[in-house]
Amino acid sequence: MTGALSTVTVRGNSRARPGARVTLGEALSGGILALLLVAAIAPQLLAPGDPLAVHPLESFRPPSWGHLFGTDESGRDIFTRVVHGARPSLLIGLAATAIGVGLALILGTLGALSNRVVDFATTRIVEVLFALPGLLLALVFIAIAGPGILTTTIAVGLSTAPGYARIIRGRILAVRESEYIDAAVVLGRSPWFITSRHIIPNALAPVFVLATLGVGQAIVWASSLSYLGLGAVPPAAEWGAMLSAGRTYMSVAWWMTVFPGLAIVATAAAATTLGRSIQARTRQGQK
């Protein structure tokens, strides 16, 4: 009987191992994000040139060995600008996601742990914000506060907060009904201890996984706002601003928009792929 049980256990473990293997998509996404981190932290390692250096005689050069991504209307190297543009784009995406999760944590926690009046008020606020399209909400905020990189970051964060707030509130309400919370109450633990030690950590675990998916979305939204001239403006080495500057020359210099656009797509796809993989592995671990 013991041998049979051990055999079953070994077989079960052998079946679980393939699920822990890194897939090709995860490896590619991890490589892309690692390359982007290097570009954001030390861009000079990949592109030692100056992203703002002007060379009028080199304007509109197509992609070649001398200029891998070609040059723009002022002779600036597109590859150098794309590499140096990774830092502001990633910072905007990460900061906007942090703002959205932080604001959602406040609204969701107040709604789930306060009395009915506060819960009703916060829930109505979240529902009103959630009814508006995220990009439209960001545009409204920018129209009030004015354009700029900081304003764009806050606007994107505010537009993502309602979705996170609904998830956090639902998770906290579900955790409050758990048996270990009842056990902590019976043991005489204070409400603050229960909230900070048990409810918040267990409720936020899936939110941080979803935030990984939100980083890619935040980068796309921030680039869209920069493309509209509401974020970073040319000649800043930022992907959305580069798209905005290159749209005028699409017929004569397609590379001015294609390569910054590919950087945005690759970053969003890599972040989304890794986020979904983490989410799937977390669910498998809970079963």
Rank of each mutant, 00 (worst) to 15 (best):
G170C: 08
G163Q: 12
M1V: 13
T80E: 02
I172T: 01
R197T: 10
T282M: 02
R21G: 03
W239K: 00
R276P: 05
L37V: 15
E127P: 00
I41H: 00
V185T: 13
T122V: 15
G146D: 13
W255A: 10
A165S: 13
L36R: 00
Y180S: 08
A104R: 12
L129Q: 07
T97P: 02
W254V: 14
P260G: 14
G275W: 10
G66P: 00
E238C: 04
L135M: 09
V83G: 10
Y249R: 06
L68F: 07
L45S: 05
I149E: 11
L225Y: 12
P63V: 02
L213T: 09
F79M: 06
L24W: 15
A96Y: 10
E179C: 01
M250A: 09
P62A: 15
T71M: 11
A271M: 07
A165P: 03
T23L: 06
G134M: 13
A39L: 02
T23Q: 06
R197D: 10
L105C: 06
T267P: 02
L45A: 03
V209R: 10
E179D: 08
Q279M: 00
S190I: 04
V83F: 05
N115V: 04
A263H: 02
A203Q: 04
A232M: 03
V126A: 12
I181G: 03
L45F: 01
R87L: 11
A184L: 12
L46F: 02
S159V: 08
D50Q: 08
L37R: 03
R169N: 09
T123Q: 14
S29N: 07
A183C: 10
L274K: 09
P260K: 02
S251Q: 15
F141M: 03
P133Q: 03
S277R: 05
T212D: 00
E58S: 06
M242V: 09
L274I: 11
A42S: 09
L103P: 02
L137G: 05
G275Q: 06
L210H: 11
P147D: 11
T153D: 12
G3D: 07
L113E: 04
I41A: 04
L150M: 09
V209A: 05
A280L: 07
T151V: 08
S89Q: 11
P88G: 13
